[in-house]
Design a protein around this nucleic acid. Sequence first.
DNA 1: ATGGCTGAGCTACTCAGA
Length: 256
Amino acid sequence: MKICSWNINSVRVRVNALDSLIENYNPDIILLQEIKCENNQFNEFYENSEYNAIVTGQKGRHGVATLVNKKINFTKIEINSKIMNKEARICGVSLGKLSIFNVYVPNGNPPEIIEKYEFKLQWLDELSKMVERYISNYQDIIVAGDFNVLEHENDVKDFKNWNLDALGKIETRKLFRKILSKGMCNVVRIFDKPGENYSYWDYQKACWERNYGLLIDHFLVSPFVLQNTNNISFKKEFRDFEKPSDHIPVMINLEI
DNA sequence: ATGGCTGAGCTACTCAGA
């Protein structure tokens, strides 16, 4: 089973790119972040595709959607957290024993604005509690998406310029580790060395041209899922498209 | 050492992204 995660940065302007993702890689499940539209509008785009869609949208900002191939049976998971539901940033689907959460963690910058940064920290803490509930019940779980977290110092070329940023601050990274400590593994760490892959390049400062990227899109999986993960791949060609998203699709391949 | 964009809402610009 192929599961792909992509911060699409507006589904409206990326319809062709998403079609190309489907055509070239045919993922069974696609987790989209920053769709930047309301539920109805998303459904207009994809009601005739070979996917069913679970959408948590809102007007203009944020928004996540999970596309599930029509051959796969699933149910929608209701998210109960007040903090997580404050903005359209999470949706979940259950495939029997396996639960898949699509997340768009708050950016949190600038950290000096307490409400912004605290919201990010609270959000990550809520996520760790949610993961703990699944793990302690021996459930298989995948949490993937745009975490807005630099887990490793080599997830950017010059970490010293990021250790006061909301993406790199130690408080942020500790909460990411708290999620891992529940029993999750960041799949990229099994297959790639830190610094080998980035998932985001800023539109400014010729970041793409000089490969100044960040690795902030992650796949966290529970033990059984990890054991059955064959590989992870970064679809870099999508950053070269005309009008690209600033993030690229990341895909894992499971033997289940 | 440097590079300064993009999308949404809305209709001239601000805000947010990371």
